[in-house]
Simulated scan of single mutants.
Amino acid sequence: MNSNNLGKPKTGDLVPSRYALRIGEIDVLVVSDGVLPLPTATMATNADPADRATWLDDMFLPPDAFDWPLNVALVRSGDQNILIDSGLGGEYPGFPRAGQLPSRLEAAGIELASVTDIVITHMHMDHVGGLLVDGVKGRLRPDVRIHVAAAEVKFWESPDFSRTAMPPSVPPVLRSAATRFFNEYQSQLRIFEEESEVARGVIVRRTGGHTPGHSVVCLASGGDQLTFAGDAIFPVGFDHPDWHNGFEHDPEESVRVRIGLLRELAATGGLLVATHLPFPSVGRVAVNGDAFRWVPVFWDY
């Protein structure tokens, strides 16, 4: 290797921004939408600040703010190409390193026109914002099917932020993004109640908790399983599944959902991907006493 070329990549990315794997006959591509800097206090609002500081220090993370990863996924089952969430989008000047999905799909040679279905785990701005970027709707198929839980749509008609602990500037932006998403894509929505089969081996299931219509996507094929957990699980949730995240609209229900999902994954050995776990966010869950342990997969080159 010519050392003079180090630090001078031919592309704009210094590190990989996509990771491919197969679940039986289903192809999965995890794509990084970038990172979202947030105050560390939002990830453990019911924890003693000293305990939170200890966890951050043990994880070699800064005490006040750190970068939340943003992951989306592309799934191919048969002749269907399914996008799970769409990232943040590009209209939020305070988050310049997020909203990378369009450019990273382009770099992967994936055209938005090839997407037949979109699953929205919930309507927070970092999950629907990518669909609000100028020009994106026009590049999607007119008949694209967008799957979202009925409880989620109903919630955002008059959202309740009374039990969240977000920075005060965030709720109006969340409300605006959800309203814009619904207004722009209403005719393409495929609304389900509790569970829906999006494609062969691809099931979207409402969990509630984080938002009333929050959903996870379960893939199963050839004896393999993978769950895209959206915002049901955050990095701190393995060690402290009872800690509340400030963006959870029903913190107690979120804890119940999180623990149930982690127990399920530990029992089945299925793979886990979640929006805010470090990219590529592919791993398994093990029981660790009264808590859990995250076991990242070894990258397969």
Results as ranks from 00 to 15, higher is better:
Gly7Ala: 04
Lys8Pro: 08
Pro9Gln: 08
Lys10Leu: 10
Thr11Gly: 13
Thr11Gln: 12
Gly12Phe: 09
Gly12Cys: 07
Asp13Asn: 15
Val15Trp: 13
Val15Gly: 03
Arg18Ser: 15
Arg18Leu: 12
Arg18Ala: 14
Arg18Cys: 06
Arg18Gly: 04
Tyr19Lys: 01
Tyr19Ala: 07
Leu21Met: 14
Gly24Val: 06
Glu25Asn: 14
Ile26Ser: 06
Asp27Leu: 06
Asp27Val: 04
Leu29Val: 13
Leu29Cys: 11
Leu29Phe: 05
Val31Gln: 05
Ser32Leu: 12
Asp33Ser: 09
Leu36Gly: 00
Leu36Thr: 01
Leu38Cys: 04
Leu38Met: 11
Pro39Cys: 05
Thr40Tyr: 05
Met43Tyr: 14
Thr45Ile: 15
Thr45His: 06
Asn46Lys: 12
Asp48Asn: 14
Asp48Cys: 08
Ala50Trp: 10
Ala53Thr: 04
Trp55Met: 09
Trp55Arg: 09
Leu56Thr: 09
Leu56Gly: 05
Leu56Ala: 12
Leu56Cys: 12
Leu56Asp: 11
Asp57Leu: 14
Asp57Ile: 09
Asp57His: 11
Asp58Cys: 10
Asp58Glu: 15
Met59Leu: 05
Phe60Thr: 13
Phe60Trp: 13
Pro62Ala: 15
Pro63Met: 13
Phe66Lys: 02
Asp67Pro: 04
Trp68Pro: 00
Pro69Asn: 14
Leu70Asn: 01
Asn71Arg: 09
Gly78Ser: 12
Gly78Tyr: 10
Gly78Pro: 09
Asp79Thr: 12
Gln80Met: 12
Gln80Arg: 15
Gln80Lys: 15
Asn81Thr: 14
Asn81Lys: 12
Ile84Cys: 08
Asp85Phe: 08
Ser86His: 01
Ser86Cys: 15
Leu88Met: 13
Leu88Ile: 08
Gly89Cys: 12
Gly90Asp: 14
Glu91Asn: 15
Glu91Cys: 05
Tyr92Lys: 06
Tyr92Phe: 15
Gly94Ala: 10
Ala98Trp: 07
Gly99Leu: 05
Gly99Met: 02
Gly99Tyr: 02
Ser103His: 04
Arg104Met: 11
Leu105Met: 14
Leu105Asn: 00
Leu105Ile: 10
Glu106His: 11
Glu106Asn: 07
Ala107Ile: 04
Ala107Met: 13
Ala108Tyr: 05
Gly109Leu: 06
Ile110Thr: 06
Ile110Gln: 05
Ile110Pro: 01
Ile110Glu: 07
Leu112Arg: 00
Ala113Gly: 13
Ser114Ile: 00
Val115Lys: 02
Thr116Gln: 03
Asp117Tyr: 02
Ile120His: 01
Ile120Asn: 05
Ile120Tyr: 01
His122Val: 01
His122Met: 06
Met123Glu: 06
Met123Tyr: 00
His124Arg: 08
His124Gln: 13
Met125Ser: 11
Met125Asp: 02
Gly129Cys: 09
Leu131Asp: 00
Leu131Trp: 01
Leu132Ala: 07
Val133Gln: 00
Gly135Cys: 03
Gly135Ala: 00
Gly135Lys: 00
Gly135Ser: 03
Val136Pro: 07
Lys137Ile: 02
Lys137Arg: 15
Lys137Leu: 07
Lys137Asn: 03
Arg139Gly: 00
